[in-house]
Design a protein around this nucleic acid. Sequence first.
DNA 1: CAGTGTTTACAGGACA
DNA 2: TGTCCTGTAAACACTG
Length: 313
Amino acid sequence: MPRPGRNTYSDQKPPYSYISLTAMAIQSCPEKMLPLSEIYKFIMDRFPYYRENTQRWQNSLRHNLSFNDCFIKIPRRPDQPGKGSFWALHPNCGDMFENGSFLRRRKRFKVGSMQATDPLVPSKPQDAAHYLQQQAKLRLSALHAAAHLPQMPGGYNLSSVSQPSGFKHPFAIENIIAREYKMPGGLAAFSTTGYPLHNQLTPAWPHMYGSGMMDTAAPISMAASDYSAYGMPLKSICHGGQTLPAIPVPIKPTPASVPGLPGLPTHIPAFLANSPQSLSPTSPQTATGQSSPAAPGEALPSSASLQSAVAVH
DNA sequence: CAGTGTTTACAGGACA
DNA sequence: TGTCCTGTAAACACTG
Protein backbone atom coordinates (compact mmCIF):
# COMPACT_ATOMS: atom_id res chain seq x y z
CA MET A 1 0.00 0.00 0.00
CA PRO A 2 1.53 3.25 -1.00
CA ARG A 3 2.20 5.52 1.86
CA PRO A 4 1.20 9.10 1.42
CA GLY A 5 3.76 11.75 1.77
CA ARG A 6 3.50 14.57 4.15
CA ASN A 7 1.15 16.55 2.04
CA THR A 8 0.52 14.37 -0.89
CA TYR A 9 1.52 11.32 -2.71
CA SER A 10 0.05 12.64 -5.78
CA ASP A 11 2.59 11.00 -7.99
CA GLN A 12 2.24 7.67 -6.31
CA LYS A 13 -0.38 5.21 -7.17
CA PRO A 14 -3.51 5.76 -5.15
CA PRO A 15 -4.52 2.88 -2.91
CA TYR A 16 -7.69 2.31 -4.86
CA SER A 17 -8.59 -0.21 -7.43
CA TYR A 18 -9.99 0.91 -10.72
CA ILE A 19 -13.35 -0.25 -9.53
CA SER A 20 -13.10 2.05 -6.55
CA LEU A 21 -11.93 4.93 -8.64
CA THR A 22 -14.67 4.46 -11.14
CA ALA A 23 -17.24 4.17 -8.43
CA MET A 24 -15.93 7.33 -6.84
CA ALA A 25 -16.23 9.17 -10.09
CA ILE A 26 -19.76 8.02 -10.61
CA GLN A 27 -20.72 8.75 -7.05
CA SER A 28 -19.18 12.17 -7.18
CA CYS A 29 -21.54 13.19 -9.86
CA PRO A 30 -24.97 14.20 -8.63
CA GLU A 31 -26.48 12.43 -11.57
CA LYS A 32 -24.78 9.24 -10.44
CA MET A 33 -23.87 8.37 -13.95
CA LEU A 34 -21.04 9.51 -16.12
CA PRO A 35 -19.76 8.94 -19.60
CA LEU A 36 -16.42 7.26 -19.88
CA SER A 37 -14.64 10.43 -20.76
CA GLU A 38 -15.88 12.10 -17.60
CA ILE A 39 -14.73 9.17 -15.53
CA TYR A 40 -11.31 9.57 -17.03
CA LYS A 41 -11.41 13.24 -16.31
CA PHE A 42 -12.44 12.76 -12.73
CA ILE A 43 -9.62 10.35 -12.06
CA MET A 44 -7.03 12.47 -13.75
CA ASP A 45 -8.22 15.60 -12.02
CA ARG A 46 -8.08 14.01 -8.65
CA PHE A 47 -5.16 11.64 -8.95
CA PRO A 48 -2.15 13.04 -10.77
CA TYR A 49 -0.69 9.58 -10.91
CA TYR A 50 -3.18 8.79 -13.61
CA ARG A 51 -2.18 11.68 -15.77
CA GLU A 52 0.49 9.49 -17.21
CA ASN A 53 0.28 6.23 -19.08
CA THR A 54 -3.28 7.05 -19.85
CA GLN A 55 -3.63 4.38 -22.46
CA ARG A 56 -2.67 1.69 -20.02
CA TRP A 57 -4.95 2.50 -17.15
CA GLN A 58 -7.79 3.64 -19.35
CA ASN A 59 -7.77 0.32 -21.06
CA SER A 60 -7.86 -1.35 -17.68
CA LEU A 61 -10.66 0.86 -16.60
CA ARG A 62 -12.71 0.09 -19.65
CA HIS A 63 -12.05 -3.55 -19.04
CA ASN A 64 -13.39 -3.17 -15.53
CA LEU A 65 -16.48 -1.37 -16.68
CA SER A 66 -17.35 -4.10 -19.09
CA PHE A 67 -16.23 -6.98 -16.98
CA ASN A 68 -17.77 -6.11 -13.66
CA ASP A 69 -21.46 -6.41 -13.16
CA CYS A 70 -21.42 -3.63 -10.67
CA PHE A 71 -21.23 -1.16 -13.50
CA ILE A 72 -24.20 -0.62 -15.70
CA LYS A 73 -24.14 0.90 -19.09
CA ILE A 74 -26.94 3.34 -19.69
CA PRO A 75 -27.47 4.17 -23.31
CA ARG A 76 -27.72 7.72 -24.39
CA ARG A 77 -31.05 8.81 -25.52
CA PRO A 78 -31.62 10.32 -28.93
CA ASP A 79 -31.71 13.79 -27.45
CA GLN A 80 -28.28 13.43 -25.93
CA PRO A 81 -25.83 12.99 -28.72
CA GLY A 82 -22.31 11.96 -28.01
CA LYS A 83 -20.00 9.07 -28.01
CA GLY A 84 -20.33 6.18 -25.68
CA SER A 85 -22.86 5.49 -23.02
CA PHE A 86 -23.29 6.63 -19.48
CA TRP A 87 -22.01 4.38 -16.76
CA ALA A 88 -23.66 3.97 -13.42
CA LEU A 89 -23.27 1.78 -10.40
CA HIS A 90 -25.61 -1.10 -10.06
CA PRO A 91 -28.15 -0.18 -7.41
CA ASN A 92 -27.40 -3.31 -5.47
CA CYS A 93 -23.66 -3.20 -5.44
CA GLY A 94 -23.44 -1.11 -2.34
CA ASP A 95 -21.53 -3.33 0.01
CA MET A 96 -18.77 -4.73 -2.13
CA PHE A 97 -16.14 -2.96 -0.10
CA GLU A 98 -17.45 -3.46 3.36
CA ASN A 99 -14.26 -5.13 4.40
CA GLY A 100 -12.74 -1.69 4.56
CA SER A 101 -10.30 -2.24 1.76
CA PHE A 102 -10.76 -0.35 -1.43
CA LEU A 103 -7.97 -2.18 -3.08
CA ARG A 104 -9.65 -5.48 -2.95
CA ARG A 105 -13.31 -6.16 -2.71
CA ARG A 106 -14.83 -8.49 -0.21
CA LYS A 107 -16.36 -10.29 -3.08
CA ARG A 108 -17.03 -9.71 -6.67
CA PHE A 109 -20.39 -8.29 -7.48
CA LYS A 110 -22.37 -10.62 -9.65
CA VAL A 111 -25.81 -9.77 -10.82
CA GLY A 112 -26.99 -13.31 -10.79
CA SER A 113 -25.76 -14.20 -7.36
CA MET A 114 -26.15 -10.97 -5.59
CA GLN A 115 -28.14 -10.56 -2.48
CA ALA A 116 -31.49 -8.96 -2.88
CA THR A 117 -30.54 -5.68 -1.35
CA ASP A 118 -33.69 -4.09 -2.48
CA PRO A 119 -36.61 -5.86 -4.01
CA LEU A 120 -37.52 -2.72 -5.85
CA VAL A 121 -34.27 -2.68 -7.68
CA PRO A 122 -34.17 -4.82 -10.77
CA SER A 123 -31.35 -7.26 -10.87
CA LYS A 124 -31.00 -7.72 -14.58
CA PRO A 125 -28.61 -5.23 -16.07
CA GLN A 126 -31.04 -4.10 -18.69
CA ASP A 127 -33.76 -3.62 -16.13
CA ALA A 128 -31.38 -1.93 -13.78
CA ALA A 129 -30.31 0.43 -16.50
CA HIS A 130 -33.90 1.25 -17.20
CA TYR A 131 -34.52 1.67 -13.51
CA LEU A 132 -31.56 3.98 -13.22
CA GLN A 133 -32.73 6.00 -16.13
CA GLN A 134 -36.12 6.40 -14.57
CA GLN A 135 -34.52 7.45 -11.32
CA ALA A 136 -32.39 9.81 -13.29
CA LYS A 137 -35.43 11.43 -14.79
CA LEU A 138 -36.93 11.95 -11.38
CA ARG A 139 -33.73 13.36 -10.05
CA LEU A 140 -33.26 15.75 -12.86
CA SER A 141 -36.76 17.00 -12.47
CA ALA A 142 -36.16 17.38 -8.79
CA LEU A 143 -32.91 19.17 -9.28
CA HIS A 144 -34.58 21.44 -11.69
CA ALA A 145 -37.43 22.06 -9.35
CA ALA A 146 -35.12 22.57 -6.40
CA ALA A 147 -33.26 25.17 -8.34
CA HIS A 148 -36.43 27.12 -8.69
CA LEU A 149 -37.76 26.69 -5.21
CA PRO A 150 -38.38 29.92 -3.39
CA GLN A 151 -35.56 30.94 -1.15
CA MET A 152 -35.94 30.09 2.48
CA PRO A 153 -35.41 32.88 4.93
CA GLY A 154 -31.73 33.34 5.19
CA GLY A 155 -31.20 31.31 2.12
CA TYR A 156 -32.34 27.99 0.90
CA ASN A 157 -31.17 25.57 3.47
CA LEU A 158 -30.51 22.48 1.52
CA SER A 159 -29.92 20.45 4.59
CA SER A 160 -33.58 20.69 5.23
CA VAL A 161 -34.28 18.70 2.16
CA SER A 162 -31.44 16.34 2.36
CA GLN A 163 -31.67 12.70 3.07
CA PRO A 164 -32.71 12.45 6.66
CA SER A 165 -31.15 9.14 7.28
CA GLY A 166 -27.72 10.37 6.41
CA PHE A 167 -27.10 7.34 4.33
CA LYS A 168 -23.77 7.38 2.59
CA HIS A 169 -22.95 5.02 -0.15
CA PRO A 170 -19.86 2.97 0.56
CA PHE A 171 -18.37 4.07 -2.71
CA ALA A 172 -18.65 7.70 -1.90
CA ILE A 173 -15.30 9.29 -1.46
CA GLU A 174 -16.57 10.56 1.80
CA ASN A 175 -16.94 7.05 3.05
CA ILE A 176 -13.75 5.88 1.54
CA ILE A 177 -11.84 8.66 3.14
CA ALA A 178 -13.69 8.30 6.38
CA ARG A 179 -12.89 4.64 6.50
CA GLU A 180 -9.29 5.43 6.09
CA TYR A 181 -9.44 7.70 9.05
CA LYS A 182 -10.19 4.70 11.11
CA MET A 183 -7.48 2.59 9.68
CA PRO A 184 -4.73 1.98 12.11
CA GLY A 185 -1.22 2.80 11.09
CA GLY A 186 -0.24 4.06 7.73
CA LEU A 187 -3.47 5.25 6.36
CA ALA A 188 -4.38 7.08 9.46
CA ALA A 189 -2.48 10.00 8.14
CA PHE A 190 -3.71 9.46 4.70
CA SER A 191 -6.74 11.59 4.75
CA THR A 192 -5.18 14.39 6.62
CA THR A 193 -1.85 14.49 4.95
CA GLY A 194 -2.47 12.20 2.07
CA TYR A 195 -4.35 13.22 -0.98
CA PRO A 196 -4.45 16.92 -1.19
CA LEU A 197 -8.11 16.91 -1.76
CA HIS A 198 -8.39 20.52 -1.00
CA ASN A 199 -5.45 21.53 -3.06
CA GLN A 200 -6.63 19.52 -5.95
CA LEU A 201 -10.17 20.51 -5.57
CA THR A 202 -9.58 24.16 -5.38
CA PRO A 203 -8.43 24.60 -8.92
CA ALA A 204 -10.48 21.79 -10.24
CA TRP A 205 -13.72 22.80 -8.66
CA PRO A 206 -13.75 26.54 -8.95
CA HIS A 207 -17.49 26.64 -8.99
CA MET A 208 -17.67 25.17 -5.56
CA TYR A 209 -15.11 27.34 -3.97
CA GLY A 210 -16.13 30.31 -5.90
CA SER A 211 -19.85 30.09 -5.91
CA GLY A 212 -20.42 29.29 -2.31
CA MET A 213 -21.15 25.66 -2.80
CA MET A 214 -18.38 24.78 -0.46
CA ASP A 215 -19.20 27.51 1.91
CA THR A 216 -21.07 26.23 4.87
CA ALA A 217 -22.67 29.56 5.48
CA ALA A 218 -23.54 30.47 1.99
CA PRO A 219 -26.95 29.70 0.68
CA ILE A 220 -27.17 27.81 -2.50
CA SER A 221 -27.68 30.12 -5.32
CA MET A 222 -29.30 29.55 -8.58
CA ALA A 223 -25.96 29.82 -10.19
CA ALA A 224 -24.67 27.08 -8.02
CA SER A 225 -27.56 24.93 -8.91
CA ASP A 226 -26.62 25.21 -12.48
CA TYR A 227 -23.50 23.32 -11.74
CA SER A 228 -23.16 19.76 -10.85
CA ALA A 229 -20.83 18.59 -8.16
CA TYR A 230 -18.61 17.72 -10.97
CA GLY A 231 -17.66 21.29 -11.39
CA MET A 232 -19.18 21.64 -14.74
CA PRO A 233 -22.49 22.94 -15.79
CA LEU A 234 -25.24 20.46 -15.33
CA LYS A 235 -26.36 21.44 -18.73
CA SER A 236 -23.25 20.09 -20.23
CA ILE A 237 -23.58 16.84 -18.41
CA CYS A 238 -27.19 16.64 -19.25
CA HIS A 239 -26.64 17.41 -22.85
CA GLY A 240 -29.27 19.97 -23.18
CA GLY A 241 -30.45 19.77 -19.78
CA GLN A 242 -34.06 19.27 -20.06
CA THR A 243 -34.83 15.70 -19.98
CA LEU A 244 -31.80 13.88 -19.82
CA PRO A 245 -31.09 10.87 -17.87
CA ALA A 246 -28.37 12.10 -15.85
CA ILE A 247 -29.84 12.34 -12.45
CA PRO A 248 -28.52 10.86 -9.29
CA VAL A 249 -29.39 7.33 -8.68
CA PRO A 250 -30.12 5.68 -5.40
CA ILE A 251 -27.74 2.97 -4.56
CA LYS A 252 -29.35 1.80 -1.44
CA PRO A 253 -32.80 2.98 -0.66
CA THR A 254 -33.20 4.17 2.85
CA PRO A 255 -35.96 3.25 5.19
CA ALA A 256 -37.16 6.78 4.79
CA SER A 257 -37.64 6.24 1.14
CA VAL A 258 -41.03 6.83 -0.18
CA PRO A 259 -42.62 3.82 -1.75
CA GLY A 260 -42.70 4.40 -5.41
CA LEU A 261 -39.63 6.56 -5.17
CA PRO A 262 -37.28 4.06 -3.70
CA GLY A 263 -34.31 5.59 -2.08
CA LEU A 264 -34.46 8.66 -4.10
CA PRO A 265 -31.78 11.11 -3.47
CA THR A 266 -28.86 9.91 -1.55
CA HIS A 267 -26.03 12.32 -1.17
CA ILE A 268 -22.97 13.80 -2.62
CA PRO A 269 -19.61 12.81 -1.30
CA ALA A 270 -18.61 15.04 1.50
CA PHE A 271 -15.34 15.92 -0.07
CA LEU A 272 -17.39 17.65 -2.65
CA ALA A 273 -19.83 18.92 -0.20
CA ASN A 274 -17.80 20.14 2.67
CA SER A 275 -15.23 22.74 3.17
CA PRO A 276 -11.68 21.47 3.27
CA GLN A 277 -11.54 21.76 6.99
CA SER A 278 -14.26 19.26 7.32
CA LEU A 279 -12.00 16.66 5.89
CA SER A 280 -10.29 16.55 9.19
CA PRO A 281 -11.10 13.43 11.14
CA THR A 282 -12.26 15.53 14.00
CA SER A 283 -14.44 17.73 11.97
CA PRO A 284 -18.13 17.59 12.63
CA GLN A 285 -18.88 16.53 9.17
CA THR A 286 -21.00 13.90 10.78
CA ALA A 287 -23.33 16.61 11.82
CA THR A 288 -25.26 16.08 8.70
CA GLY A 289 -28.75 17.18 8.75
CA GLN A 290 -28.80 20.10 11.08
CA SER A 291 -25.81 22.27 10.64
CA SER A 292 -24.91 20.50 7.51
CA PRO A 293 -23.59 22.88 4.95
CA ALA A 294 -25.43 23.69 1.85
CA ALA A 295 -23.43 21.23 -0.04
CA PRO A 296 -24.09 20.33 -3.61
CA GLY A 297 -24.90 16.81 -2.72
CA GLU A 298 -27.06 17.68 0.16
CA ALA A 299 -28.75 19.91 -2.27
CA LEU A 300 -30.78 17.06 -3.45
CA PRO A 301 -34.30 17.19 -2.22
CA SER A 302 -35.72 14.53 -0.03
CA SER A 303 -37.95 11.91 -1.45
CA ALA A 304 -40.99 13.80 -0.38
CA SER A 305 -39.67 16.99 -1.81
CA LEU A 306 -38.81 15.12 -4.91
CA GLN A 307 -42.26 13.77 -5.28
CA SER A 308 -43.80 17.15 -5.02
CA ALA A 309 -41.13 18.62 -7.18
CA VAL A 310 -41.68 16.02 -9.80
CA ALA A 311 -45.36 16.48 -9.49
CA VAL A 312 -44.95 20.15 -10.15
CA HIS A 313 -43.29 19.26 -13.35
C1' DC B 1 -9.97 7.86 -37.37
C1' DA B 2 -10.40 8.20 -32.54
C1' DG B 3 -13.01 6.89 -28.86
C1' DT B 4 -15.69 3.36 -26.85
C1' DG B 5 -16.98 -1.31 -25.50
C1' DT B 6 -16.16 -6.40 -25.29
C1' DT B 7 -13.57 -10.30 -24.69
C1' DT B 8 -9.67 -13.27 -23.75
C1' DA B 9 -5.46 -14.28 -21.57
C1' DC B 10 -2.10 -14.16 -18.14
C1' DA B 11 0.61 -12.70 -14.04
C1' DG B 12 0.68 -11.41 -9.36
C1' DG B 13 -1.17 -10.64 -4.84
C1' DA B 14 -4.52 -11.43 -1.06
C1' DC B 15 -7.11 -14.48 1.43
C1' DA B 16 -9.30 -18.69 3.46
C1' DT C 1 -2.24 -24.26 -1.84
C1' DG C 2 -6.19 -23.19 -4.40
C1' DT C 3 -9.33 -19.62 -5.32
C1' DC C 4 -10.55 -15.14 -6.17
C1' DC C 5 -9.63 -10.41 -7.34
C1' DT C 6 -6.94 -7.04 -9.69
C1' DG C 7 -4.03 -5.10 -13.23
C1' DT C 8 -2.34 -5.23 -17.72
C1' DA C 9 -2.10 -6.26 -22.55
C1' DA C 10 -4.08 -7.11 -26.75
C1' DA C 11 -7.29 -7.99 -30.36
C1' DC C 12 -11.43 -6.89 -32.31
C1' DA C 13 -15.95 -4.69 -33.31
C1' DC C 14 -18.74 -0.78 -33.16
C1' DT C 15 -19.87 4.11 -33.50
C1' DG C 16 -19.89 9.20 -34.07
